[in-house]
Amino acid sequence: MTTTDTQDAQSAPYAHEHTPRLDLAARHPEFYRAMLRLEAAASKEVDPALYHLVKIRASQVNRCAFCLDMHTKDALAEGETVERIVQLSAWEESRHFYTEKEAAALELTEAVTVLTDGFVPDEVYERAAKHFEEDELARLVGAIVVINAWNRIGVTTRMVPGHYTPGAYKK
């Protein structure tokens, strides 16, 4: 490849942005408001840094580009490191970037998110239970369930990533 070819490839426009399928908030506002209330309840008393990691990891697994855009921007704005966010997709190989408690939460996040692989294994749940008191664990499970619901909304309605401003959806 010549220098000119490389420059042309680098200056080529990006692919076109897709169009959302449905504005769920506008078409079913009662449901959307209920989801916002569920989000507010799920995030209560959960460590914000941990909550960001859980939201990002579930969104990676579910391939929800809108949620990845939102939650990585929010995490960065609140002080999370680029390195820890980048390593999330390979957290098991990058365990040294995370505490044991965070790793247990990430493992539980994956198990709850990918239920098509079977039930949440007892050993995964037990590892999480070693790091979280029951009330904390209940809140963590709630947080995982809510981000999975948001991911399904984002993917199904084809919400468009790239336009989110950090903190735009603060409770």
Score class of each variant (00 low, 15 high):
L140M: 03
E93M: 14
A49Q: 07
T109W: 11
E126V: 09
Y164D: 03
E123H: 15
L88Y: 04
R152Y: 05
R84Q: 09
A77S: 14
L50R: 09
N148G: 11
S94G: 03
V82Y: 10
R33M: 02
R139N: 13
T6G: 00
R57L: 12
E83F: 06
A42P: 03
A34I: 00
A26C: 01
I56K: 10
G142D: 01
H71M: 06
A77L: 11
V160N: 06
H28R: 13
Y125R: 14
H163W: 07
H18T: 05
E83H: 10
V124C: 10
Q10T: 07
G79K: 11
A143P: 05
E126D: 14
G142V: 00
V114W: 03
M35V: 11
G154T: 00
E78M: 14
H52A: 08
A15C: 02
R21Y: 14
L53T: 00
V54P: 09
A25Y: 08
V160H: 08
L68A: 08
E123T: 10
A41R: 09
A129D: 07
A9T: 03
Y164W: 07
F31Y: 11
A75Q: 06
E100H: 03
T6E: 09
M35C: 07
R21Q: 11
T99Q: 06
I147Y: 03
L36A: 08
L22N: 01
E133S: 12
H163S: 12
V114R: 15
T116Q: 10
T81Q: 04
L68W: 08
P29I: 07
T165H: 06
W150Y: 13
L24R: 08
R21C: 02
R27N: 14
L24F: 15
E134C: 02
M159G: 00
A111C: 05
V155H: 03
Y98S: 11
A103G: 04
T109I: 09
E107I: 00
A143T: 10
N151C: 06
V112N: 05
L24M: 13
